[in-house]
Nucleic acid binder design. Structure first.
Length: 293
DNA sequence: CGCCCTGTTGGGGA
DNA sequence: ATCCCCAACAGGGC
């Protein structure tokens, strides 16, 4: 479930362990990871370089090497990065689905695990190329100073797509995924199917605050639960109890007690309390006055 | 056992 | 602008 809080948790965990180390060897086991680029070319260009810094932009992890090379990694649905995972069999079994292996100083390893193989790695050269790549894909940082109600309302002007689709669009807001979108909409008491362009400034204020709160709650919980060998399932397991509505169809709303329902919004499973988050009014049909005709 | 459905993301085509 | 489908696999219900 890597959305912004999970990716940031992984980053915080790994950064102090890999920054300042040399990447001695890179083995890309799955050619799909770099497609359409040739994995051998990526291996050759990064082997022997110093890892200067591990950053995050939206849901991307960005490893910056000396010589101004950036390796942009995306975990998608099921990807994760494990530090020094076990190698053996039996109780010390190596994790399955290893797609990329990084060998660092002193035998330290980093393994990109990804059962579903949606994850990607992309090598970019220079800040210019990096910024250009991200600029067309990522919008506002929801934890940054520019993430304001006024900015959101301006971006949504005239937009008829559901507000949930707006939250999920990484080119507008970088880092919110399906689960945190549901949580934020519930906290802000806004129905996911409301057209984004129809929200008032006050509602954008509520939603902005709710997004920040939800992400920070995830950050606080994620940071407390990850360790060297922890899989993303471990992270998810402990925080899942804190989700108010997501995957809780049929359960009582914690606010009002009405059963939470599951519906479809922006093509994703969506959970909502339809008392706390009233449905949008049916699209208003032009009312033709019949008076005095 | 097999079939069908669902899913934490993003890109491309309609 | 918006919607639908797809990538590849695991897990659950029937």
């Amino acid at each position: 479930m890597p959305e912004l809080p999970e990716v940031e948790t992984i980053r915080r965990h790994l950064a102090p362990r890999v920054e300042g180390r040399v990447l001695h060897r890179l083995e890309i086991l799955d050619a799909r990871w770099t497609a359409p680029e040739d994995p051998r070319a990526v291996e050759d260009q990064l082997a022997g370089r110093l890892i200067e810094r591990l950053g995050r932009r939206g849901k991307y992890l960005v490893a910056t090497f000396d010589g101004d090379a950036h390796l942009l990694m995306h975990l998608r649905m099921t990807g994760t990065l494990l530090y020094d995972p076990p190698l053996g069999n039996g109780p010390d079994a190596a994790p399955a689905h290893g797609r990329v292996r990084f060998t660092l100083d002193e035998g330290r390893r980093l393994v990109f695990i990804d059962p579903r193989r949606f994850g990607t790695g992309r090598l970019l050269h220079g800040d210019r190329q990096l910024e250009q790549y991200l600029a067309v894909r990522l919008g506002l940082d929801p934890l940054g100073p520019a993430f304001t109600a006024a900015a959101l309302k301006a971006m949504a002007r005239g937009r008829v797509a559901p507000v949930k689709a707006f939250l999920l669009d990484q080119r507008r807001i970088a880092g919110v995924g399906n689960i945190y979108a549901d949580e934020a909409l519930f906290r802000a008491r806004i129905h996911p199917l409301r057209p984004a362009g129809r929200l008032s400034l006050g509602q954008w204020r509520d939603l902005r605050d709710a997004v920040v709160e939800a992400l920070e709650a995830g950050l606080a919980a994620g940071g407390a639960t990850i360790d060297d060998y922890r899989t993303p399932e471990g992270v998810q397991g402990s925080f899942q109890n804190e989700f108010l509505v997501h995957t809780r169809a049929g359960e009582a709303c914690p606010e009002c007690g009405r059963a939470i329902v599951k519906l479809r919004a922006a093509g994703r499973g969506t959970y909502v309390c339809e008392r706390c988050q009233p449905r949008p009014r049916a699209p208003r049909r032009p009312v033709v006055s019949t008076w005095g005709s």
